[in-house]
């Protein structure tokens, strides 16, 4: 098992740089195309959600652990409490007029992750763990 950590400030340029760092790491690990894009997607959706809705003050901490048959991503941030497991998926809209442009990110995360765990830490941080099969 190998562990890595990506820490970034809660702003877009830092987020973009963190995404590029993750992509570099995934390329180095030689993951197949599908698990690689699943990990990228999980990172993108969770990090974007924290920045857009969480109003975190301090750095966002992401631990990445590579195991034999899955990658585990653990996000910790000091933003507003948000438990995606309590978030109902948007109904699949039948037309453009009624389509809600929101909630898609959480829906995508739940589809790419085989396991999702959420806790609010004693320090009042969100801790979200995602397991992605490789």
């Amino acid at each position: 098992m190998e562990r890595y950590q990506i820490v970034f400030a809660p702003n877009l340029p830092a987020f973009y740089e963190a995404s590029a760092t993750l992509r570099g790491l995934l390329a180095e690990k030689g993951l197949a195309a599908k698990p690689r894009s699943d990990v990228e997607l999980a990172f993108e959706e969770v990090a974007a959600n924290i920045l857009k809705h969480g109003s975190p003050v301090h750095d966002i901490d992401v631990q990445i652990s590579f195991q034999a048959d899955h990658v585990i991503l653990t996000f910790e941030d000091d933003g507003l409490p948000f438990n995606p497991l309590l978030h109902r998926d948007p109904d699949v809209p039948e037309s453009l007029d009624e389509a809600q442009i929101g909630g898609l990110g959480v829906m995508i995360v739940k589809q790419v992750a085989s396991r999702v765990e959420y806790s609010r830490t004693p320090q009042q941080h969100n801790r979200l763990t995602l397991e992605i099969s490789v």
């Binding site: 007029d97 442009i101 898609l104 990110g105 829906m107």
Partner: peptide, 19 residues
């Protein structure tokens, strides 16, 4: 080669404005 929810949101928003 890669799309996330932000990209889908953009496509839906443009399709709706066109409609």
């Amino acid at each position: 080669n890669f799309v996330a929810s932000m990209g889908i949101r953009m496509l839906i928003a443009v399709a709706r404005s066109l409609k």
